[in-house]
Design a binder for these strands. Structure first.
Lengths: 212, 212
DNA sequence: GATAACTTGCACACTGATGTGCACGTTCGT
DNA sequence: ACGAACGTGCACATCAGTGTGCAAGTTATC
């Protein structure tokens, strides 16, 4: 029984689903390099024709929307699993998780400031932002995070700094673990820790040295 | 003697020069909001017709090039005047100067990662980058700046963090002195100082509290 | 192996932006 | 006040990207 309520339609073919995935992956890679790449370029990167792309997505907007949802979903999932008694450790962990999904993060960061998609990206990423904000507040409360900047503002600054360092590390092409370390250091530095404190925190905490 | 070697050409009219300036200013404002705004929009923002714009600039590329040179010139001039025995103070001062020219900085930051202009922007801004790199090295040498990241990389990270915070502060529309403070704190935090050290440095150093 | 799903390649229409030519007003400089 | 410089408005050509229709070929699936 391949159909629930579908009126006499077969199940979608397997390769079609694969091609859809290929298109999304190609879009991530292509748009990360050039945020305004043509659908022609994206389809070609996926090994398909431009015409075929329209068989999967109604147009550019729908493709981008799918991309946002897909990327945000992964980030939200990654951010949801982290938890630690020490707020600063949790923040560093969050940074490490982001680094493990660099391409998605870079795409979101690019798209998140393009006019038509800002809102969608923002609402899709809201859970991650709220999580970070909660960590910042907790850190301020127990004195492990700076208190000279309003928590709401500080949360955004930590996010922006970490993103900037992440983008730079990705552009230069740093090795995986070095990039992760830099992102964690950026988050901790913006949170107010000195470089020795941040370094000690990372080396003393096994969870931060392990792979995902 | 209105002509040096010009073969029989009069001096340019006064209003023409004013319009050229108006076009450049309009371009800064318009492109900061939307990096891919049309020449139509830019000309309109300057109170001119699109056709008139072509009387001043051969096309989009020449306009952008003029914009880059103009913005970079101001930043280089601003960065050149700073000097202080303490490397960290000098870095904070550099951040403050950048904040005093937010619009130009934002434009350069936007343009500096668009393909055709990357090189021009990079070479025009090279003096500022070299200055920052020198300050970082000096700071590492005297122990006031972190030594857990290679100086060359660290200089880029300080730059990126400060830029990210600057962009965020400008977007939210923070008051002038609050934004300047945040940019300084971002630079110092990435340089390795704890938030208390950075705060103390700013309040204890008169040059950092004064206006430009 | 028959059939529907999928892809391809082409053609076409449409849009937004760019670049240019030209005739006609307006304004500055002298 | 005269002439040149400048701006305007229009027309026109061009170009890249988009979105769609259709016929023909290929491939998965039953």
């Amino acid at each position: 029984m391949p159909s629930d309520t579908d009126a006499g339609r077969r199940t979608p073919r397997r390769d079609a689903a694969e091609n859809r995935e290929a298109l999304l992956n190609a879009a991530v890679a292509t748009l990360a390099a050039d945020p305004e790449a043509s659908l022609e370029a994206i389809a070609a990167a996926a090994g398909l024709s431009r015409r075929a792309l329209y068989g999967h997505f109604a147009g550019r907007d729908e493709l981008i929307a799918a991309l946002i949802d897909r990327g945000a979903e992964r980030l939200v999932a990654a951010a949801g699993t982290i938890d630690h008694a020490d707020a600063t450790v949790a923040m560093a962990l969050l940074g490490a998780r982001l680094w493990d999904a660099v391409e998605h993060v870079r795409l979101l960061a690019q798209v998140a400031l393009r006019r038509p998609y800002v809102e969608r990206a923002a609402s899709a990423l809201a859970p991650v932002r709220e999580r970070l904000a909660a960590l910042v507040e907790r850190g301020v409360a127990d004195g492990s995070v700076r208190s000279d900047i309003r928590p709401a503002v500080l949360a955004r600054l930590v996010e922006e700094s970490a993103l900037a360092v992440l983008a730079e590390a990705a552009r230069v092409g740093l090795p995986h673990d070095e990039g992760r370390r830099l992102v964690m250091l950026a988050a901790l530095g913006t949170a107010g820790l000195s470089w020795r404190e941040a370094g000690a925190l990372i080396t003393d905490t096994p969870e931060l040295t392990e792979e995902a």
